[in-house]
C-alpha cells in the first residue's frame, strides 16, 4: 500500500548547549514507517543549525517570536500554508506553546493539525503551580515558592535550607548556596526569562527523565525512562541510558491517567537515597533526547503525528533497556548566501 506523504513543520532547530528537540524530532519523522514526509523547519534565529541541514530539512521559514502575538504568528502561517500545504506542526519550545494552543482551532481550519495539551493542562503543570499539582494528583514534588521581587528574599531562609534551586518560568535553573547567590540568580534569570522566579527545595539524588505520549483520554501511548549519565553545567543530559524502573513507569501512567494529558511530554524526576521519586518538572513537549526513544523502539514523534491526523495509534508496550545515547556537536560548513537568504528573506 502506498504510504501517505505528509508535510510536517517542526520548530526547535537550535542546538546550543541546551539544544532544541527539533532536529531529533525530524530524525524520528524521517524514520517513520507509516508515512513519508516533507519537513518544513520553523526558525526564530538565522543561526539555528537545523536550517542548514538540507538532508533533514527540505525548507525553512523564520517565524516571529511568541512575544509578537498570535495575530502576527497566524499571518505568517497563512503565508507559509499557501506555499507548503502543511498537514501538521510540531512545536518544540515551552515558550511557544501558549500561542500555538491558542491558535489550534484557527490552524485546523487552515488544514494544519497539532496534538498539544489543552490550555488547562498546560497551565496546571506549570512549574509555578507545581505544589498544587503535587497535592491534587498525589505526587511527591519538592517544596517551591513563587517570588516576584527580592524584597522577600530574606524570608526564604526560614522556609528553605541551602542549597536551594532558583528557576526561571520557562528555562534556566541555578543552585544557590547563600542568599547573595539567590539574589544574583534571581537577577540573571529574570532578566532573560521574566518574572516570576521559582524557588525550589533542593532534592539530593539521581536524575531521571521520562518521555512519552498521552492520547488525551488517559491512555499511555508511549513511555521511555532514561537515566542521565553525563550532565552539562546547564543540567542537560549529554548522555543517557534507557532503564526499566516500574515505579517510574507507573508514575507516568498515573500522570497520564489522571490528567488525561494530550501530547508529548517529559517528566523530570529525582530519586533520593530512600528511593522516593520526586517530580521536579513537567515539560509539555518532546525533549531533545527524544531520538533515544526511537532507538529503543518507540517512535514517539511518528505516533504523535498519527494522533494529530486523527488516526488510531496502538500503544507501545515494549522498549529496549540499556540503550544509550551519546550526544555530540558537529561543525557544518555553510555558504554565506544561505545565511543571507534566511536572514533577509526569512526562508531557505
Amino acid at each position: 500500500m502506498k504510504k501517505p506523504k505528509l508535510n510536517i513543520a517542526v520548530t526547535g532547530l537550535n542546538a546550543i548547549d541546551s539544544p532544541g528537540p527539533g532536529v531529533s524530532v525530524i530524525r524520528a519523522l524521517r524514520e517513520a514507517t507509516s508515512f513519508d514526509t516533507r519537513i518544513i523547519g520553523l526558525s526564530y534565529e538565522s543561526l539555528e543549525p537545523g536550517i542548514y541541514m538540507h538532508d533533514l530539512v527540505d525548507r525553512t521559514y523564520s517565524i516571529p517570536y511568541p512575544t509578537a502575538g498570535t495575530d502576527t504568528l497566524l499571518e505568517r502561517f497563512e503565508y507559509i500554508q499557501e506555499r507548503e500545504k502543511l498537514d501538521v506542526i510540531i512545536p518544540n519550545f515551552d515558550a511557544e506553546l501558549y500561542p500555538f494552543i491558542k491558535l489550534e482551532n484557527k490552524l485546523k481550519e487552515m488544514g494544519i493539525h497539532m496534538f498539544l495539551p489543552t490550555m488547562h493542562q498546560f497551565e496546571e503543570r506549570h512549574k509555578v503551580n507545581l505544589n498544587e499539582f503535587g497535592k491534587k494528583y498525589g505526587v511527591h514534588v519538592p517544596k517551591s515558592k513563587v517570588i516576584y521581587d527580592l524584597n522577600t528574599a530574606h524570608s526564604l531562609v526560614s522556609e528553605f535550607s541551602f542549597p536551594m534551586i532558583v528557576k526561571g518560568k520557562f528555562y534556566d535553573a541555578s543552585i544557590a548556596y547563600s542568599i547573595e547567590q539567590v539574589k544574583s540568580c534571581f537577577n540573571k534569570i529574570s532578566a532573560k526569562w521574566g518574572l516570576p522566579i521559582i524557588i525550589q527545595e533542593f532534592i539530593h539524588g539521581t536524575e531521571f527523565n521520562v518521555t512519552g505520549l498521552g492520547d488525551g483520554k488517559g491512555k499511555t501511548i508511549a513511555a521511555v525512562p532514561m537515566r542521565k549519565q553525563y550532565i552539562t553545567d546547564k543540567g542537560k543530559a549529554w548522555g543517557g541510558i534507557s532503564i526499566s524502573d516500574e515505579k517510574m513507569l507507573e508514575m507516568t501512567r498515573k500522570f497520564l491517567r489522571t490528567t488525561k494529558w494530550r501530547g508529548g511530554f517529559e517528566l523530570e524526576l529525582m530519586k533520593n537515597k530512600d528511593g522516593e521519586l520526586y517530580l521536579l518538572e513537567i515539560n509539555p513537549r518532546l525533549p531533545a533526547w527524544i531520538y533515544l526513544a526511537v532507538g529503543v523502539g518507540q517512535n514517539i514523534p511518528e505516533a504523535l503525528v498519527n494522533l494529530a491526523m486523527g488516526r488510531t495509534v496502538k500503544p507501545f508496550t515494549d522498549y529496549a533497556v540499556g540503550k544509550m545515547f551519546v550526544r555530540y556537536s558537529w561543525d557544518m560548513i555553510v555558504d554565506r548566501e544561505e545565511f543571507e537568504q534566511i536572514s533577509i528573506y526569512g526562508e531557505l
Partner: peptide
C-alpha cells in the same frame, strides 16, 4: 554489570 532499574553500570 548493568542494573536496568537504576541505569548504573
Amino acid at each position: 554489570l548493568f542494573n536496568p532499574v537504576t541505569g548504573e553500570s
